[in-house]
Write a protein that binds this DNA or RNA. Sequence first.
DNA 1: TTAAAGTACTTTATAAATTAAAGTGATAAA
DNA 2: TTTATCACTTTAATTTATAAAGTACTTTAA
Lengths: 101, 101
Amino acid sequence: MTPEKFSQLDPVIHSRVRLGILTILASVKDASFAYLKDKIGTTDGNLSANLTRLEGEGYISMKKTFAGKKPLTTCRITGKGRAAFSEYLRTLENLLPLKTE
Amino acid sequence: MTPEKFSQLDPVIHSRVRLGILTILASVKDASFAYLKDKIGTTDGNLSANLTRLEGEGYISMKKTFAGKKPLTTCRITGKGRAAFSEYLRTLENLLPLKTE
DNA sequence: TTAAAGTACTTTATAAATTAAAGTGATAAA
DNA sequence: TTTATCACTTTAATTTATAAAGTACTTTAA
């Protein structure tokens, strides 16, 4: 049994913005670009880049539609993303001295 | 009351290697370079750079001595580092759906 | 009606951080 | 002696993240 190492934490998830995206997407059916931006507190460019990264990893999917006349990007976590996120949390709990009450 | 944002997570701490360093140093009086390297599972160069970063932030202190004839770097968390680490954990617990049992 | 401001992003450029490779200086082993 | 090893540091290369521009509209307001 190898000792638990911090390198086990999925680097795709271990980014403040991507962690925020996945945390939100794990708890709602889907979320818009604007909603994510507001909740996470980042810039348009940064959010865009990180969503693209997560989509590239197959952790989320994005659908582009229109809300009236305005473009609307809707994001959703995938099964793979949900599994990776759960595993990330599990690893964190094993590694950190957390005391959730 | 502003919504909780992931940008509140201290970027100095939110790095897999530095998180590992602080987690260990928070639970022991001090630790050697070799011990940290083994426990965290990283390379010499990476560990060295991250220790220097933490020292620069005032989160840890390093003492260089000799163990017999070999150089020995001993690391210790500072009060500031301990406070920042606690705050990081507190923020994480507020942000993530953790279920520590 | 048309100019200005806003929305909802993406793309490109720049800065910062991580990782990998090479380097240092000493000891120990063959 | 030369080869290897230890305990790191430094430099270089790659990857990330942040910031600045850019695109393609829509809405408001003169």
